[in-house]
C-alpha cells in the first residue's frame, strides 16, 4: 500500500511540471499583457513595471527563475494586486472555497445518498422514479440557473436567507452550499442507486435476509459499504471539481473564494496568479484522486488484496 502511494506521488511530479510549463508559455502567448490598460501607458512606465516583474528578461530566464521561486514555495507577486503575493491571495481564498466545497459535498452526500438508497430499495416504483427524476433535473440544471432561482425564492420572496455574502450574515452559507451541492447530489444519487442495486442482488445479502435480519439492518450494516464504492470513487474528483469549479457560485453569491480570483486572473493576464492557482489546483486534484483511490481500496477487500499482491 505504501509503495502504491509512493509510486503515485512520484508519477505526479512530471505531471505537475508539464502543467507548469504549458501554462507558463500559454499565458505568455495570449495576446495582451498584464499592464495593458484602456488608457495609453507611457513607454517609460511600462518599462519600469516590466523590470519590477522580471518581464524584461528573456522568456527562458523568466521560466527558470519562476521554477526556482516555486521550489522555494514562492508563487511570486500578483500583477493585478500590487502589494499582494500569490501565496497570500491563495491562502485568503482557499479556506472559503474549501469550506464551501465541504458544505456542498455534505449536502450532496446527504441528499444524494438518501435519494440513491431510497431508489435502490424499491426499484421501478414511485420511490425510485421520483428521486431519480429530481436527480436528472439536478444534473441538467446548471448552477447559474439554480443559484438565482434559490435566491429569488428564499432570499427575495420568502426573505428567509441572505442573497449574497459569506460569513457576513447568519445563514448566508446555506444557499451557496445548496446550489453547489445540488448537481453533485444528483450524481451521487444515481451512482448510489446503481451501486446499491448491484449489492442488494448479491448472495451475502440474500444470506442476511435468510437469517431474518430486519431490512434496515441489512441496508446499513451489509449493503451500504459495498454499495457506496462508486460514490467514494467519485468523491475525490468531485471535491477537486468543487474547488476548481465553484467560480460560478462564488460569483452569484459574491463569495470571496479562490474561483473568483482564478478566473479574474486569466482576464487580467495576471501571469503569476494564473500559474499559481493552476499549479495549486492541479496538485490538489492529483492528491484528491489519490485519496479517493486509497479510500476505495480500503472499502473494497478485493482491490486491497490486489494491491497487496503486487508488493
Amino acid at each position: 500500500m505504501l509503495r502504491f502511494i509512493f509510486l503515485r506521488l512520484l508519477q505526479a511530479i512530471p505531471v505537475i511540471l508539464v502543467v507548469i510549463t504549458v501554462t507558463f508559455f500559454l499565458v505568455r502567448a495570449a495576446p495582451g499583457g498584464p499592464f495593458d490598460s484602456d488608457k495609453a501607458v507611457m513607454p517609460e512606465v511600462k518599462a519600469a513595471l516590466e523590470a519590477q516583474y522580471r518581464l524584461d528578461l528573456p522568456i527562458s530566464q523568466q521560466y527558470f527563475a519562476y521554477l526556482g521561486d516555486l521550489a522555494k514555495g514562492d508563487l511570486g507577486p500578483s500583477f493585478k494586486y500590487p502589494g499582494r503575493d500569490v501565496n497570500e491571495l491563495i491562502s485568503a481564498g482557499l479556506p472559503v472555497t474549501a469550506e464551501l466545497g465541504a458544505y456542498a459535498l455534505l449536502v450532496a452526500l446527504i441528499l444524494g445518498g438518501l435519494a440513491g438508497i431510497m431508489a435502490a430499495l424499491k426499484p421501478n416504483t414511485a420511490q425510485d422514479y421520483i428521486p431519480m427524476s429530481f436527480a436528472m433535473i439536478g444534473i441538467c440544471m446548471p448552477t447559474f440557473l439554480l443559484g438565482p432561482l434559490l435566491v429569488l425564492v428564499f432570499g427575495i420572496y420568502l426573505e428567509w436567507l441572505p442573497v449574497a455574502g459569506w460569513g457576513d450574515i447568519p445563514g448566508d452559507k446555506i444557499l451557496p452550499s445548496l446550489t453547489l451541492g445540488a448537481a453533485y447530489a444528483a450524481y451521487i444519487a444515481r451512482l448510489g442507486r446503481a451501486g446499491m442495486l448491484e449489492v442488494m442482488s448479491q448472495d451475502y445479502i440474500r444470506t442476511a435476509r435468510a437469517k431474518g435480519l430486519p431490512e434496515w439492518r441489512i441496508v446499513v450494516k451489509h449493503a451500504l459499504r459495498g454499495g457506496m464504492i462508486p460514490v467514494v470513487a467519485f468523491l475525490g474528483p468531485a471535491f477537486a471539481g468543487l474547488l476548481a469549479g465553484s467560480f460560478v457560485v462564488e460569483t452569484i453569491f459574491q463569495i470571496p473564494g479562490l474561483g473568483r480570483f482564478y478566473v479574474q486572473a486569466a482576464f487580467n493576464r495576471d501571469y503569476t496568479m494564473i500559474l499559481g492557482t493552476t499549479v495549486f489546483l492541479s496538485t490538489l486534484i492529483i492528491l484528491f484522486n489519490l485519496l479517493a483511490d486509497i479510500l476505495a481500496a480500503w472499502m473494497n477487500p478485493r482491490l486491497r488484496a490486489q494491491l497487496g499482491e503486487s508488493k
Binding site: 455574502g165 460569483t251 453569491f253 459574491q254
Partner: peptide, 14 residues
Amino acid sequence: ENIVSEERMFRAGQ
C-alpha cells in the same frame, strides 16, 4: 462584481 447579484443584494436590503 456581478451586477445582477448586486441588484438582488440591494433588494434584500444588504
